[in-house]
Nucleic acid binder design. Structure first.
Lengths: 336, 336
DNA sequence: TTGTAGGCGTTATCAT
DNA sequence: ATGATAACGCCTACAA
């Protein structure tokens, strides 16, 4: 069933059918009614391939999400969706593997869907450095900073990871902790991992706390299991600590279980602070203390910036979004 | 950059370029080398719209996933991916909203990508009843039973939800519990919700346990918050119970927190049993007791069935996959 | 082994 | 207000 069939069926030409389908003007009410009826009756579905092949510019906005089981990104997508819904732009959300090249995927999708702009949820700077020049429409990198990248069509909105991690450690130290370890991300391959590590170190330095990367830091993947294993290693190495800072809530959850399995109570023996502010955290026992990222704000600013770039041809903007240290039940004050 | 440009650039015709691009035979080594080099150098990207518009049949297999923050589906996708990777078929994974029509989406994708077969992860039978006749290629509904649906190109692989829920309740009763409540799904709009409810009731009946839908059942959405709220309502209604069965692990997690907030300990005061067997469950404190679905087996059977339908033109098959009741730390035996 | 040409379903430009 | 027709980029007989 094509628009040709539809044309034959209704007695109109393909052009008129196309006009009706796309809500274009210059169609009589009669034609519109009849054609719409035929569409309904025949269950006609427009061929997106042909449409996109022909169209130079679509009217949609694209979101490329890295990783599918990331609660924070899910929340971000939801928030972005509700914001874009208020505009005239359709939204296309595309999920890709944690470890595939988001930029090349975007290049591909640009050609397929011809979007007006792209929102990247998560991204690897190497991919951007290597391939982003191939993209010419306005883009926003969400949750990672892109101000150091030399592209004037790439904006960014992110939490200041270094600053947030520093504040997190500050807060732990303020609770009286002196022996602290960190279960963090890969400092070499993940910007986020590196920045949060740096914030942690900076805080320790400022407070005269001894922090030895070799023994007090584990750089692993952001998963329950990795958080568990890393913590188990820290314990096995007889590292003494009263507080553990995890660079992601999922690692904090793994860490808490590892502590428990080694006879350590949270927060009585060890305080645990996570990062992200996942909804899950507030349902746990104990409720997870964490660095809460402003998901709503991040979505809002990302969308606003992208739209302004699209509509007003503005240049790239780089923004930072606030965070909140939430002391819930997994951290506690200790005496000296 | 199109294959025409590539042809001009290399001095060959478009047909030869196309042959090289698609690994077709009848191309000289020389031509292949030169053209491949030109592709690399120019960063040529094939136009998927044009390709799919022209092609009658693609060679890919499609997975339509309902919901993006579903840990079990993520695990399923991963397992499916690794299985399909061993075949010659490319895999396309498409994520859609929890509450959008997966069948219509599939219809759309059929026309766009012309896949050989489809795997549905999650699905609503109403959508299938209403629209599935539009799909003519082999499909497998994963995690829901489709044996009652009248389509001979729709297979299904699922846990026997009713039986699993019954066994779950049996196990709770075997631990000595007599006063049990259930935090379940919507019995009207969710097959899964209804079946797990029925299994629960059946077990209670068989064991002479009093179970009153009005007061002992809460049908809500599968989320932390809904599990929390439902449990809070049960407690507020002064319903006495020593065990709570949740139709999903996420609801069980919400339930545990609600119990805690009302001064009830798990498992000392109330035993909690979940459903799904999420990885997360074994990192919680207490480790979540649950009905573990065989994700690996489900992926394996789904893929096998789909491939056999595609390659051998077999008819629809409906299979059930085993489950395991895992008594971990959130349930305990009580004395009469 | 290679090239030419027609058509996939749509949109959009011209006429009418 | 409507219709004929030329692209869009690719694949694939069919020819050479």
């Amino acid at each position: 069933m094509t628009i040709k069939d539809l044309a034959k069926k209704t007695g109109y030409g393909v052009a008129t059918v196309s006009r009706v389908l796309n809500n274009h003007p210059n169609v009589s009410e009669k034609a519109r009614k009849e054609i719409l009826e035929a569409v309904r009756e025949s269950g006609f579905q427009i061929n997106a391939n042909a449409k996109h092949l022909k169209q130079q510019h679509a009217t949609s906005i694209l979101v490329v999400v890295k990783g599918t089981s990331n609660e924070m990104f899910s929340a971000l997508v939801e928030s972005i969706q509700s914001r874009i819904a208020k505009t005239k732009y359709p939204l296309i959300v595309d999920y890709i593997d944690e470890d595939s090249n988001e930029v090349m995927r975007a290049v591909q999708l640009c050609q397929e869907k011809k979007p007006l702009g792209i929102l990247f949820l998560g991204g690897n700077s190497e991919h951007f450095i290597k391939d982003f020049y191939k993209i010419e429409i306005p883009c926003v990198l969400v949750s990672n900073d892109a101000s150091k990248l030399p592209f004037d069509n790439l904006s960014s909105v992110a939490t200041d990871d270094r600053q947030a991690a520093k504040c997190a450690m500050d807060s732990i130290i303020a609770l009286g902790h002196r022996k602290v370890v960190m279960v963090g991300g890969d400092r070499e391959n993940s910007d986020t991992g590196r920045l949060r590590y740096e914030g942690c170190v900076q805080s320790c330095n400022e407070h005269g706390i001894d922090f030895d990367v070799e023994h007090d830091y584990e750089g692993v993947r952001f998963s329950y299991q990795d958080g568990y294993d890393a913590t188990a290693r820290l314990i096995a190495a007889k590292r003494e600590f009263t507080a553990l800072f995890a660079a992601a809530d999922v690692m904090a959850i793994g860490a808490i279980r590892a502590l428990k399995d080694n006879g350590l109570r949270v927060p009585e023996d060890v305080s645990v602070l996570g990062f992200d502010g996942l909804a899950l955290g507030s349902f746990l026992v104990p409720k997870l203390s964490t660095v809460e990222q402003s998901v709503g704000k991040m979505a809002e600013r990302s969308v606003d910036i992208l739209l302004s770039c699209i509509e007003k041809n503005g240049g790239a903007q780089h923004e930072t979004v606030p965070f909140v240290i939430r002391q819930r039940e997994s951290t506690r004050r200790i005496s000296g």
